[in-house]
Design a protein around this nucleic acid. Structure first.
Lengths: 121, 121
DNA sequence: GATGCTTAGTTTCCAAAAGAAACTAGGTAA
DNA sequence: TTACCTAGTTTCTTTTGGAAACTAAGCATC
């Protein structure tokens, strides 16, 4: 860790990067791109519930940050493939862990919620 | 991973948990609570830029999900300590990795942004 | 005994973002 | 010519986020 950057500091540029990464859609996109390039509409179909606007915006930001690449193919109709860059691949383990943590611990979270809500009566 | 839960599904309860975890403030709070309990105002001072409202809301949600505990001490004035639960501790490695990834890769991200912005001229 | 400080929040208000749905545009197939 | 594919953008409404003020109890200072 370099001393010049501190994510706990309000004005540190790392805060903006964390804000991008610590986002539901970013995590799902990066996780989906693990091991294969995926087209826009395929991402839209796989990541259920994402709107075209938000998907488009999120992909653009991830591309700008150098985490994913965007490749246009001159097919008919034109197709666009998104893939992880080498930089993006350094996030794979962490993002996958975060994305799927809930699947492994959902029952415990649901029990905690139930217990918490009971104390509010 | 249990077959009954799939974070890619819109209506799956895991999606709500991911939405909670994949949040800038949640990540910073969980990271800050690694290895020690911290009081409300201390969190507020350490995590620079967080508003009292958002800190309070986020802590409440993390507590409801069973990731952190809230302990009130009858000091004068009353103090409240937040700490990771055993469930919350299972996220430590992953959350720390995500929180500090930017500090290690900021230069590369900044270079990518600069390069991306140049192509827009 | 009024002012100011601490604790841990809540409330209010406005701006920014998220989401749903419609629209664009170019080309193919029925 | 109607419909569907691609990959988006635009518009509008609702929800959320953030800044600042306020609450409330208790102690120290002047």
């Amino acid at each position: 860790m370099q001393a010049e950057y501190d994510v706990y500091e309000d004005k540190c540029p790392t805060r903006m990067v964390l804000d991008r990464l610590a986002d539901k859609w970013s995590v799902l996109i990066l996780d989906r791109l693990d091991n294969e390039a995926v087209r826009f509409n395929q991402l839209r179909r796989d990541i259920k519930g994402v709107s075209q606007k938000v998907l488009s915006q999120t992909l653009k930001k991830l591309e700008r940050d150098g985490l994913i690449s965007r490749t246009v193919f001159a097919t008919v109709p034109v197709t666009v493939e998104y893939a992880l860059t080498p930089l993006g691949k350094t996030l794979t383990d962490c993002v996958s862990e975060l994305a799927h943590w809930a699947e492994r611990n959902m029952d415990e979270v649901l029990a905690a919620q139930k217990s918490y809500d009971k104390t509010l009566d």
